[in-house]
Design a protein around this nucleic acid. Structure first.
Length: 781
DNA sequence: TTAGGGGCATTTTTT
DNA sequence: ATGCCCCTAA
């Protein structure tokens, strides 16, 4: 199948391009050193500067290298200045990395590349310049999910739509879907406009859009959609960007959605110097509106495109490549590539497939594996655990903390999405921009200052009636006697505070002001008074927030950064194992990769299959492919027989993907538990040798905080097994208990044994009800 | 008006 | 298991 696909691509040589004199001159000029280290295909991709170019780059074939070298090459040839190159990446991380790598080749010149960034960042930049033309002010705010939901709720409430039946999230999903397809309300197909809440879909989209405009705000979708609208309505502006960017490069093209595609097509109409790089087999953002079709269609959209295939893999052993290729071959709609490697390594290890009894044992086993590899010399930085869902991370964190394994989490619960951070940001935002009602609303009564629903409604109505910001309405209301008592005191204090902070914006250093705001608002006091276990952690996060502000010149500059950067990177610290989702892992590589949780329903995810059928399944398979190809030397695939889902133990079956791996490249680990120490029960209490150094990594501290959530006594307990029995114990003597015995369990208290099966007891506890436990966890009462 | 308890639904992945 | 919403008591 890959054969046919291969033949359909006519080989176009770069030598067919360029003037005769250019070609002649090129022949005698020595190739710059940066070109020499490239293989012929890579070099073709780099040197095909003019006209449309599609680079199909399999995993590990040097894609980033091609992109960065290409930019360096364009700069070196003097074909464009840094500001005349548009380079789009998918994530901030990728943008950062590319900037660094370009600098490494061409020096600090790359610092001057203002148009290297994510679609969203570049879209923002464009919109700020031409805000009036899309009904915004240049200082518009970018909403995050939290704000969007609040807004959606308000709209649904105003429309008398039951938000239980029609969840705000779903409404936003629908609208975002339209935006991702480049559709303004006017362009939504009439049938689709009938979706949601008995035909109100389109109306809600309009209301939502109007509300955004009146708030002077944009959501993520707008950052793509509005530039398109701008370009279409203003040909002169479009033309200015078309000529500004002489060369355009797009990374991860397989992940672009329709809006992004339209965006690029508009811009590339003129000089057509568009180079896209991607791999259809790594398209994993379909759920976010990505259209693999964009990459499959490129040659049709841009006739005469040079197509370069990068298939020579420099990353992984032949076992890993073979396994990944064999797996992905189960997918149908693909262009088909065959990765190969010249590395012949007779010592290459096949993939290891292993199972564990449950998710905790899985974490323990993998941690054991990590320790033994570490002892043999693999550094922790070269090991990663890639999970399907963030929920899987917990088990690993717990284990790492107990074992003292240093680790770092990438992605997961995002720093900027934490409640205390969002609250603090809301305070800052209102200080900078007093008219930002969503932020004001968020914190009017946090900490509580006597303002209940009643008072808030008064303010909202006053604001709406007179079409003024809530903060202003609030201060006007105070001049009347409509607000009384505690509410009055609280509100007038708050209004006065905002006025004061605002007046200090220009006089105080912004970090200092931020601290003052958190103090004077009573926010830190509220957290200090909070007896709950995570309050100290929240305070710590706020300190971290202030620290991170130091990198910026002003409060407004910081807020702009925050709204676009959703990843809290920066957790460098010492040597550590990396823990992240498969999605976050794209583009990275490690010597050793662990892929836990390969179970039906979890991976492939049940939801993906339910919602998107075959296409959903294929996307999951591509995700598996991405996972395996992250590994350079060794890859472990793991699954657990039992897993806790929504707090309930459920038995699981191995993922179908496991059986899609080629047997000849796989080694199945058959002994139970890790390292043959013995069964589950034995290794459970083994105190494994610990790493000494790592008590200062953010990850450790994070887990440490989390750990403190659990009361001390409970933490010490051996694991208690509930529901489905998930352990075999080591005791092999005669059953220690009989039906009717009175026993005591540290967590469940006293109870009567109702049933005995070997060392597993079913006990009717007085308080906790019927549980299944292991005999060694109870004592005679 | 607030705090706190109980009931309920929920969770894929990210700019 | 966790977090959110609603209800009730003070």
């Amino acid at each position: 199948m890959s054969q046919t696909a291969r033949q359909s691509v006519p080989p176009v040589s770069i030598s067919e391009r360029g003037s005769i004199s250019e070609r002649a001159a090129r022949a005698s000029r020595p190739a710059p050193s940066y070109l020499e280290s490239l293989n012929p295909e890579q070099r073709r991709a780099v040197e095909a500067i003019d006209g449309p170019v599609l680079v199909l780059a399999g995993a590990g074939t040097g894609k980033t290298r091609v992109l960065t070298t290409r930019i360096a090459h364009i700069l070196a040839l003097g074909r464009a200045r840094p500001s005349e190159i548009l380079a789009v990446t998918f994530t901030n991380k990728a943008a950062r990395e590319m900037k660094e790598r370009i600098s490494a080749v061409v020096g600090p010149q790359a610092e001057g590349m203002p148009w290297l960034g994510t679609f969203h960042a570049i879209g923002t930049r464009i919109l700020r310049r031409h805000a009036e033309l899309v009904d915004l002010n240049p200082d518009f705010t970018i909403l995050d999910t939290d704000d969007q939901i609040r807004l959606a709720k308000q709209i649904l409430a105003a429309e008398n739509i039951d938000e239980k039946r029609w969840p705000p999230r779903q409404m936003l999903g629908m609208i975002d879907g339209w935006k991702n397809r480049g559709l303004t309300p006017e362009e939504v197909p009439s049938g689709e406009g009938q979706w949601f809440a008995n035909g109100k879909g389109l109306k809600l989209y309009k209301l939502y859009r109007d509300r955004l405009k009146s708030l002077n705000a944009a959501d993520f979708g707008d950052l793509l959609l509005e530039p398109i609208r701008l370009f279409r309505a203003n040909p002169d502006i479009l033309a200015s960007y078309q000529s500004r960017w002489r060369y355009m490069l797009v990374d991860e093209y397989q992940d672009t959605n329709v809006a992004q595609y339209l965006w690029l097509r508009l811009l590339a109409q003129n000089n057509k110097n568009l180079c896209v790089v991607g791999d259809d087999d790594q398209s994993i953002y379909g759920w976010r509106g990505a259209e693999v079709d964009n990459i499959l269609r490129f040659e049709t959209d841009f006739p005469g495109a040079v197509v370069v295939r990068l298939e020579r893999n420099y990353r992984s052993t032949s076992h890993i490549l073979a396994a990944a290729s064999h797996l992905i071959a189960h997918n149908e709609g693909r262009l088909g590539k065959t990765l190969f490697t010249d590395l012949v390594d007779p010592d290459a290890l096949p993939l290891t497939v292993a199972s564990s009894w449950d998710s905790e044992e899985e974490a323990r086993a993998i941690n054991g594996e990590i320790e033994s590899l570490h002892k043999k010399g693999t550094t922790l930085d070269e090991m990663a655990i890639l999970v399907r869902t963030t929920a899987q991370m917990r088990a690993f964190e717990d284990r790492f903390v107990t074992a003292g394994t240093p680790y770092r989490v990438i992605g997961g619960p995002r720093f900027y999405e934490r409640k205390e951070i969002r609250d603090a940001l809301a305070y800052f935002r209102v200080t900078v921009q007093p008219s930002f009602d969503l932020a004001f609303e968020r914190i009017v009564n946090v900490p509580t200052r006597g303002l209940g629903q009643q008072s808030v409604r008064l303010i909202t109505e006053a604001a709406r009636d007179r079409e003024i910001p809530m903060l202003l309405a609030a201060s006007d209301l105070l001049a009347t006697d409509e607000i009384k008592g505690k509410a009055r005191t609280g509100l007038s204090q708050l209004v006065a505070s905002f006025a004061r902070w605002r007046s200090q914006l220009d006089t105080l250093p912004h970090t200092e002001l931020a601290e003052i705001i958190l103090e004077e608002s009573g926010y830190t006091d509220m957290l200090k008074a909070d007896r709950s276990a995570d309050a100290p952690g929240r305070l710590e996060n706020l300190k971290e927030l202030i620290r991170s502000m130091e990198d910026f010149d002003s409060l407004p500059a910081f807020l702009e950064h925050v709204s676009l950067v959703t990843d809290a990177q920066g957790e460098t610290g010492g040597e550590a194992v990396t823990l992240m989702t498969l999605h976050a892992a794209k583009g990275l590589e490690f010597d050793v990769v662990f892929l836990p949780g390969w179970e039906e329903g979890l991976f492939p995810s049940m939801r993906a299959m339910d919602e998107n059928g075959q296409a959903g399944l294929e996307e999951e398979r591509r995700l598996a492919y991405v996972g395996i190809t992250r590994a350079r030397k060794q890859c472990f695939v793991w699954f657990a027989l039992n897993r806790r889902i929504h707090g309930m133990w459920q038995a699981g079956a191995a993922s179908r993907f496991i059986d899609e791996l080629p047997a000849e490249n796989v080694m199945v680990r058959e002994e139970a538990g890790y390292g043959g120490i013995g069964g589950y029960g034995a290794s459970r209490f083994d105190q494994v040798e610990t790493f000494s150094s790592s008590y200062h990594t953010p990850g450790w501290e994070r887990a440490q905080r989390r750990r403190e959530d659990v009361p001390r006594r409970e933490r010490r307990l051996p694991l208690t097994i509930e529901g489905e029995l998930v352990a075999k114990s080591i005791s092999d003597g005669p059953a220690a208990y009989a039906v009717g015995d009175r026993v005591f369990h540290q967590k469940f208290g006293n109870g009567d044994v109702a049933q005995v099966e070997g060392n597993k007891l079913t006990v009717d506890f007085d308080k906790a009800g019927r549980k299944r436990v292991i005999d060694s966890f109870v004592t005679r009462a």
